[in-house]
Simulated assay, not measured.
Amino acid sequence: MRWNDWYLIVKHGGVEMEVDFAKNERSGSHYEEMRLVDFLQRYKHSDLYMVDTIPKTMMKEVYLPQSLSCGGFTQRLQDMKLWLSNGGTASTLHMDNMDNLNCMISGTKDWFLIEKEVTEKWQLHHDDGEEIAVDVERVDMYRYPALRNIPWWSARVPPGDCLYVPQGWYHQVRSHGRNMAVNIWWTPMSIFNHSDCTKGRGHRSPVQLSTLKVRPGKQIRFVLRTLLEEYGGELPKEMVQSLVLYQGESIITDSVFTEFDLNRDAWLSVAEIEALKDSTVEALLPDVQLQGVDTYGRCQAYNNTGGQSNVR
């Protein structure tokens, strides 16, 4: 791939990208929009760290990995991001509510991963949505004794390789050297349909990312269904509205809930979410890309405040 600094400056220098001013996510992130040319002229001698959706003009030069070209993945895409730094970055210990494939273009990344089934048994404090309040530089084993013996995986990913990270797997990532990666996010699927994977096997034409469409409605439905399943399969209107937030704001307004509540009983159920079409959800919640909602401890807190029970 030709994406060295000189090529990017000449070909794509004018595009605007979101830049983080801190490599360590625990040190307090500050984001700004910056032209790619300005970032590339500064990042090698600073803590600047670029993480943003790949601009359409650049997507024309990136192709979908063959492993995602069949089986329904292209119908569940949510985002395609570009990550670029001069190395030395360190993420928090966190999980994502989407599956993703992280592919290295230059540099290496070291991954620390914990299976979803293991983390579900933890009793750790979730301080910010999908992150765990662990200082990855100095892990406090007294505060988090479960980490002493927890089984984990590690991987070092070099240029040209990709790592699949399943939804719900907690992970922490460190980067080394001029570090460029592309990752592709999609809504998890409960059943893998491989019927189209045998057709033209080994002879499929490369697919440009720019030709693919993201489908936020599918992820919103997945998040809502997961939330409802965690609370027994259904929730009352006011609890749904208090739990489902986007950028800190409630997005399930009265009018949106009315459209979701197909039987008009003021409760939202898994069956009602399953009956909705992606296009309907996207029309009701335009420009919303809902990765997940923070449900940790909310059910108990809600019931302790005298709210309506989540079971009827």
Rank of each mutant, 00 (worst) to 15 (best):
V15T: 05
D99F: 03
Q289N: 14
G129P: 01
D5Q: 07
P236D: 06
Q289E: 12
D38I: 08
P65K: 14
W153Y: 12
H194F: 04
S29F: 01
T119W: 05
C197H: 13
T280I: 02
P158K: 15
E249Q: 14
L48E: 09
Q123H: 10
M58V: 08
G292F: 11
I54G: 08
Q208N: 09
R178I: 00
S269D: 03
A22C: 09
M98L: 11
P55V: 02
L212E: 14
E272D: 08
E259A: 08
C299E: 15
Q208S: 15
V311N: 14
R201Y: 14
E33Q: 13
Q66A: 06
V173L: 08
E272Y: 07
E230F: 05
G168K: 10
F112M: 02
T108P: 00
E230T: 07
T226Y: 07
H171Q: 09
Q300I: 05
R298T: 02
K109L: 00
Y164L: 14
H12K: 10
I273H: 05
P145N: 10
N86H: 09
E115R: 15
R215F: 10
F222R: 06
D265E: 09
L68M: 13
S205R: 15
R264D: 03
M50V: 02
G233S: 07
R264E: 04
Y231V: 10
K81R: 15
G107K: 07
E230V: 00
L212I: 10
M239Y: 09
L101V: 06
V240M: 12
Y7C: 01
V214H: 14
L284R: 03
D265I: 03
I150Y: 08
S250H: 13
T305H: 07
Q300L: 04
D5P: 00
P166K: 15
K44W: 02
W152K: 15
Q75D: 13
H30M: 06
G217Y: 07
R76L: 02
I273R: 05
A271F: 10
V118D: 09
L276M: 13
K23Y: 05
G306N: 13
P166I: 12
D110Q: 15
V182D: 08
L40Q: 11
L209E: 04
D287Q: 15
S279R: 11
Y49V: 00
V270G: 03
E130W: 10
V270L: 04
H125W: 10
N149W: 04
N304W: 06
V165K: 11
S175C: 06
D127Y: 03
V157Y: 08
D278R: 04
A266H: 12
R312E: 02
Q167L: 00
N86G: 03
S175M: 07
G248Q: 10
G160C: 06
R76I: 00
K237I: 00
Q219M: 13
H30F: 08
E229W: 02
Y49R: 07
Q208G: 06
K116W: 02
E272C: 03
L243E: 06
M34K: 15
W6T: 07
H203K: 12
G248H: 09
L163E: 12
R174Q: 09
P286E: 07
R143Q: 11
V118M: 01
F21T: 06
E131D: 13
G248P: 01
H126K: 15
E238L: 07
Q247D: 08
K56A: 12
V207K: 14
F192D: 13
N100G: 06
V165R: 12
G71Q: 12
W152T: 12
N179C: 04
